[in-house]
Design a protein around this nucleic acid. Structure first.
Length: 570
RNA sequence: GGCGGUGUAGCUCAGUUGGUUAGAGCAGCGGAAUCAUAAUCCGCGUGUCCGGGGUUCAAGUCCCUGCACCGCCA
């Protein structure tokens, strides 16, 4: 039995995530966690909300609420949605937790002791009307290059020129529109990542088994231009983790907080502490400290490609720089983007399907299956309603759902709601078991390797094999001449349903549970061999005919959704 | 502009270190069956593997170059 620590990129607090966000991190992480648990491994699967920073403050202000209250509410919303999608986190934490405050301050203190933090005085724009410093992109003005009047302080979107806020003509606050701005001197802490470039580079070089998408992004940041740059890790904000050196005050940094970029990944660790404090576990350090039991832990992270730099460089720099034996990530599974019907999903424009809307129109399993079987692994992939309807109807309703339906209903009509006795297994059954064993082996290999689409394809092939067998064995025909032969076929087929429920659990947990319940099966323990698994339900074992597992998506429904989700969510 | 990715059947995609007639699912066409959510099963693909050069006995698979789309640029 292995021990596997799994984290998925932590979603930002200011809103409900869309399906592209979901399939890029949390959903595949859940697939892997569920599979590993079923295989009997010890799994700790963590996720949290990322709550600090200017966007959270602004979203709270817009909602007319104190930021802490806003975040608490949005955390609950996101928690409920992750439950709705059956994401099996062992704990869903918050980056604003006391545990993270303590750990973030601890890391900062260690980094300072190691000489990896320097103080920098810089000039930043302060808005009197907003009573706050403004990040570059929250300052608007006229571009000195092209004259575009809504250029941002970091870059002009019109001519793409990189800008400094002080370059702008007639600068104003993007928050209030106020022009009462002032350039003030302020002091900030920088993490000296550049000092660790060699160490990080060697570490990345050692990860020969990582996807190219992951290592190429890391190498680019390490080697581009002057190489890895130092990064500011503090901000002049109210909402965040107060800057401290461990438990001690940090002279000159009063009233400042750590930048969200710095504290968010540390929440991966703090979340484990939250997990313990919530009474769900009793020792989080044995998952995170190599000197306290984590030396045999395998740590896997899931994320979209936009998050790769932070996970390959910034967070490792924090950990390595601390000089303490914290667990570094062993494998990073990164994803490309899911597009929506010819364009991008857009949170700001409300384009695409969001997690809350998805669950309002269809059960989680529909989305889980489609998203995972079309996961953007090798390149960006695309969601279209036609493809979604066709795939879900065919795979879930026709191939799997109908198999369950035809077997259970045939048995009920001929033998009653009990696994029939009599008859012997012959060549057809031997051949089926052999085929399934090969496919289950392949399925396991793909799941171990986190090959999501290939796993889905193999699982589907396993479902198809049942239909092929049933079609060829034709118990409805055999029943007329040789009822015992029909009984044997049905007995095996009922056992196939139970096996399918077990194998499908990581992808479609609700349907899996419904199938197990209908079959009166005890649990979803992974089979040692297919042959044994198909003998789990003995003759005489009672079952019930389940309700239709997957109702089909009609053309009318699909057309309605297509229109409804074209943009501007209401 | 720099960097990276992608470009394979109508659609969504597989194609390991270059090696036999380039594959899967869906859609389409033909057939079988009738237990089942009109659900299943069987059969059917002469595709400029984006274009053009090159290396090689052999390239979708390596090199150069052009084109298109996408992303990132702290």
């Amino acid at each position: 039995m292995a021990r596997i620590l799994i984290t998925s990129a932590i979603p930002y607090i200011n809103g409900i995530k869309h399906l592209g966000n979901l399939v890029g991190s949390q959903l595949p992480a859940d697939l892997f966690a569920r599979y590993m648990r079923q295989r009997g491994h010890e799994v700790l699967f963590l996720c949290a909300t990322d709550e600090h920073g200017t966007p959270a403050e602004l979203a709270a202000a817009k909602a007319g609420k104190p930021v802490a209250e806003y975040c608490a509410e949005m955390w609950q919303v996101q928690k409920d949605l992750s439950d709705g999608f059956r994401l099996s986190f062992d704990h869903f934490g918050r980056s604003s937790s006391p545990q993270n405050h303590k750990l973030t301050q601890h890391f900062a203190g260690r980094l300072a002791e190691a000489g990896l933090i320097r103080e920098v005085s810089e000039e930043q724009v302060y808005s009197h009307a907003d009573k706050r410093f403004l990040p570059d992109r929250y300052i608007e003005g006229t571009c000195p290059n092209c004259g575009y009047d809504r250029a941002r302080g970091d870059q002009c979107e019109n001519c793409t020129k990189q800008l400094d806020p002080t370059d702008l003509i007639d600068p104003r606050s993007a928050i209030s529109g106020s022009t009462d701005l002032e350039v003030r001197e302020t002091k900030h802490l920088y993490l000296r990542q550049s000092e660790m470039r060699g160490q990080l580079n060697d570490w990345i070089d050692s990860k020969t088994d990582w996807p190219i998408l992951t290592t190429s992004i890391a190498r680019k940041w390490l080697n581009d231009g002057d190489g890895l740059r130092d990064r500011g890790i503090t901000r002049d904000l109210d909402w965040g983790i107060p800057v401290k050196k461990g438990e001690a005050e940090w002279p000159g940094m009063e009233g400042k907080v750590f930048y969200v970029w710095f504290d968010a990944p540390i929440e991966y660790i703090a979340c484990a502490a939250e997990w313990v404090d919530a009474g769900k576990g009793d020792d989080w350090e044995r998952w995170w400290r190599e000197d306290k039991g984590a030396e045999d832990v395998r740590y896997v992270q899931f994320m979209g490609k936009d998050n790769v730099p932070f996970h390959t460089l910034s967070f490792p720099a924090t950990i390595m720089g601390s000089g303490e034996p914290w667990k570094l990530v062993d494998y990073i599974k990164s994803f490309n983007y899911l597009n929506y019907d010819g364009g991008q999903f857009s949170t700001s424009q409300g384009r695409g399907v969001f997690m809350d809307q998805a669950l309002e129109i269809l059960p989680a399993d529909y989305w889980r299956w489609w998203l995972l079987s079309h996961a953007p692994e090798s390149s960006d992939s695309e969601f279209t309603w036609e493809n979604f309807q066709a795939s879900v109807n065919k795979d879930l309703a026709d191939v799997l759902g109908n198999f369950v339906s035809r077997v259970t209903k045939f048995c009920r009509s001929k033998f009653g709601e009990v696994v029939p006795e009599g008859g012997e297994y012959g060549d057809a059954e031997v051949a089926l078991v052999a085929e399934l064993q090969g496919r289950v082996d392949a399925y396991q290999a793909h799941m171990e390797a986190m090959e999501v689409r290939k796993s889905a394809a193999e699982l589907r092939a396993i479902w198809v094999a049942g239909n092929e067998y049933l079609q060829a064995a034709a118990p409805w025909a055999a029943y007329k001449e040789d009822p015992d032969r029909a009984a044997a076929i049905v007995r095996l087929s009922l056992n196939l349903i139970r096996l399918y429920a077990v194998l499908s659990e990581p992808f479609i947990p609700d349907a899996s549970a419904a199938m197990l319940e209908a079959m009166g099966a005890a649990g979803a323990d992974w089979p040692d061999t297919v042959g044994e698994a198909l003998a789990a339900l003995p003759a005489g074992h009672g079952f019930t005919v389940p309700d239709v597992l997957f109702a089909k998506i009609t053309d009318e429904a699909r057309e309605g959704w297509q229109e409804k989700f074209a943009g501007q969510r209401g």
